[in-house]
Design a protein around this nucleic acid. Sequence first.
DNA 1: GATTAATCGCAAGATTTTCGCGCAGGGTGA
DNA 2: TCACCCTGCGCGAAAATCTTGCGATTAATC
Lengths: 153, 153
Amino acid sequence: MDEIDDFDRQLLALLQIDCRQTGDALAEQVGLSPASCLRRLQRLRRIGAVEREVAIVAPELLGRHITVLSLLTLRRGGRDALDRLRQKLLRLPQVERIFHVTGPADFVLTVRCASMEAYAAFTEEHFYDPAISGFESIVVLREHRPAMPDAAH
Amino acid sequence: MDEIDDFDRQLLALLQIDCRQTGDALAEQVGLSPASCLRRLQRLRRIGAVEREVAIVAPELLGRHITVLSLLTLRRGGRDALDRLRQKLLRLPQVERIFHVTGPADFVLTVRCASMEAYAAFTEEHFYDPAISGFESIVVLREHRPAMPDAAH
DNA sequence: GATTAATCGCAAGATTTTCGCGCAGGGTGA
DNA sequence: TCACCCTGCGCGAAAATCTTGCGATTAATC
């Protein structure tokens, strides 16, 4: 039913790098016909193996020049407060990812802002919350991303 | 030249959510013709505003069931050693992101492995390195992702 | 060894993207 | 103010790509 075979795994690996490859390109790399590759891709999308296909946008061009890892420590309280906080954080455009983690901190967020000043304002607005007992900020000096192997002509 | 106007920003916002929309769909949302949208998209790719377009794959289906944040502290040493380490980390399939950060740690990685056991093996193989003086692991219990607003079918 | 189910490749048809063209709006300088 | 250029628009044709029906092949089951 939802079985993933080696062809599927190959396709997923390729699509994780570049999801805009044509059926022909995929076919050549995995050794199937273009039609079969695309049929498999349809299925992978349908069963949720491919959750989404998204563009990665240069953050500076959206005016988000700095990245910070925010470690939030929550006040022990009801699940409701926690859910509410989570929902709120999910909706903030500055919040890129939310990890619920083990250890002294409860959440680790990756946050992107226009400037340090904007991050300061962000923390003042959102981290001084009844559900949050404290936070720590780790500033990202630079992010290293795996390059795309073959920036098409 | 490389100017980003409001149409571009709208397109980028839409493509960040779903980069597989057709020219027609984009056109309807931003109020331009399909051809113009696609021409802008070509340009956004060319100037690097759209860095990549990737599929987000359900990690379990790739056999990567757990996520860990690894905080690496480096031994003070030459730039060469640091560069070499960075290059090495970039190539590991388990390493999803690499942040070079301020604070006591030098690097924060997001690492995906099949199991805790696999993570342990991973650390033994890669974190006991002359360039690394120590590391801390924060296990991700759960990740909350912003949902895609309208899974078209 | 027959039957069933899955999936392949092929190729026609539908959809989407690319691109040349002519035109409108906005600066610029005489 | 008036040419003039430059940019970006929409239109529509051509090219590229994706989808799907079909018969054939293969693997598994009984």
